[in-house]
Amino acid sequence: MIDIVRQKISKLLSDGSVKGVVALAMANGHVAPCLFQKEDDLEPLCLGDTKKPGDARYPLNKVLITIARQYPEDVFGVLVRGCDERGLYVLYRLNQLEPDKVMTIGIACPQELAKACECKKPYPDELVAGEKTEGITQQGVQDMEDMDLSKRFSFWKNQFSKCVKCYGCRDICPMCFCRECSLECEDIISKGELPVDIPVFHLTRAMHMTDRCIDCGLCDETCPSGIPLRLLYKKTSKIMNAEFGFTSGINKNEQSPLNLMGPAPEK
């Protein structure tokens, strides 16, 4: 798989169709995001997950946004999995990246990883390497909905109480790109206090994720307190789907119903 990816990147770089490719490299003994600019430098290229599923996933799109902001006229390539590609669609929609300035190198995730990620669609639409594998059906939201209200309340209260306000969920999130963040707005979130305002802190983030979250699961992986944040955002996605027939990142050019004037579109 990596050979196909390497060939593809090499070709993109050599024929000048991209200025660079954001992908992963093995350096100093760990996997890290890397901007490859020369075809001769592709030796350390890797696909992450060297040891076990989810071992080394990075929000490469987030890196790409930073680079694209500096070099708005140049085209860059980026290594994408299914989730990353969904993220790209949303980032196009929100004007953070331009589709004609991005070339994707899509790789499918192995079944094992798809399972570990609970991924509904573990492959990108535009696939360069790897075999498409089955998506995983998710049960978590339903289970939570089946609990009674007071159980849900104490569950989330306990979960939110564990937060140490490290902002890891936000900082890792490939869909977070604001320069100023509501979570650091004193008018909304009181500062200097733990536990954080329950449920305001996490619901504020969830509301911001409502039409953005592409269910990549990096927030869950990152949270040092083990708060099941992804479950919260999955619920917002479920609402968006049930109420407005919208799924974030599934269609390339779909506008969010929350950003359309007028009543909710017909289902």
Binding site: L149, L203, L232
Partner: peptide, 25 residues
């Protein structure tokens, strides 16, 4: 303001269900 209330309604729809999900009536 033409559509303001529609926009608000959509957000309220999401928020009320999120509150419910978090165990708040």
């Amino acid at each position: 303001y033409l559509y303001g209330n529609y926009c608000a309604e959509k957000r309220v729809t999401v928020l009320s269900q999120m509150l419910d999900f978090c165990g708040i009536e």
